[in-house]
């Protein structure tokens, strides 16, 4: 089993607004580790471009890039709208490269919404996303983007942010790419599946776990005809 990335810098006051790794993060890590063999197989075939949207602490990014895909010549993008999350992720990436002894490839951190301003075309081979999925009333959604609430407040059905990404996914993911996202039952998973199937994607629920009152799901999403993932 791979160790969990260290994010001890989050204790500093300057990072108090950064979402700390929690049950949802760990579920995502476990789902990635379960697929480690196939993810490494992808990295054997070509030099991958990978990305995490809303990287937060950078924990999942480090786990994927420096843990599972250690020493592969990968370019990994980390995006977050919060500047403190971007700074925290850079530190997490640097520290854990050392811990995992990951000596190849590159992390690129960009403060942005989704992958806006990043020129990736249909080129992202592995995309991970732990969206703000908690259903919230409209009034609760913070207008100030940098507050920690933007890490969890997901609007109606918790799907406001997720829907925006799902609608762009066909323009982001490479032909043989794979996308992992965190969801909860209240997100109306069938509507996620509907949006994606319309665009030619297959959705697997690869992990399901109780976390307090929530049931967390990790979805694995890829295009129809993807020979690595089609079982």
């Amino acid at each position: 089993m791979l160790s969990t990335p260290v994010t001890s810098q989050l204790r500093l006051k300057e990072f108090q607004d950064v979402y700390e790794p929690a049950e949802d993060t760990f579920a995502l890590l476990d789902a990635l580790e379960k697929d480690a063999k196939k993810l490494r197989q992808m990295a054997e075939m070509k030099n991958l471009l990978t990305a995490e949207i809303g990287c937060g602490s950078g924990c999942a990014s480090s786990f994927l890039k420096s843990g599972i895909l250690k020493n592969k010549p990968i370019v990994h993008f980390m995006s977050d709208i919060s500047n403190s999350a971007c700074r925290a992720s850079k530190i997490t990436a640097l520290n854990n490269r050392e811990l995992y002894k990951d000596d190849n490839g590159l992390f690129i951190t960009v403060q942005t919404s989704f992958l806006d301003g990043i020129r990736l075309g249909n080129g992202v081979d592995i995309l991970i996303f732990n969206p703000p999925y908690v259903p919230t009333e409209f009034e609760e959604i913070p207008s100030e983007a940098a507050t920690i609430a933007s890490a969890w407040a997901g609007g109606t059905d918790g799907m406001d942010v997720t829907s925006t990404l799902l609608n762009q996914l066909k323009d982001i993911l490479s032909q043989d790419g794979v996308f992992y996202m965190v969801a909860v039952a209240r997100n109306k998973l069938h509507s996620i599946c509907e949006i994606l199937q319309k665009d030619g994607f297959i959705v697997n629920e690869t992990l399901k776990r109780k976390a307090g009152r929530e049931t967390l799901s990790i979805l694995r999403i890829y295009r129809i005809g993807n020979t690595i993932w089609d079982e």
Binding site: N83, R87, Q111, D116, G117, I118
Partner: peptide, 13 residues
């Protein structure tokens, strides 16, 4: 204008 601050480009509009 997109600022770069402490090595992090800010692409937010």
């Amino acid at each position: 204008v997109y600022p770069i601050f402490e090595g992090i480009p800010n692409m937010l509009l």
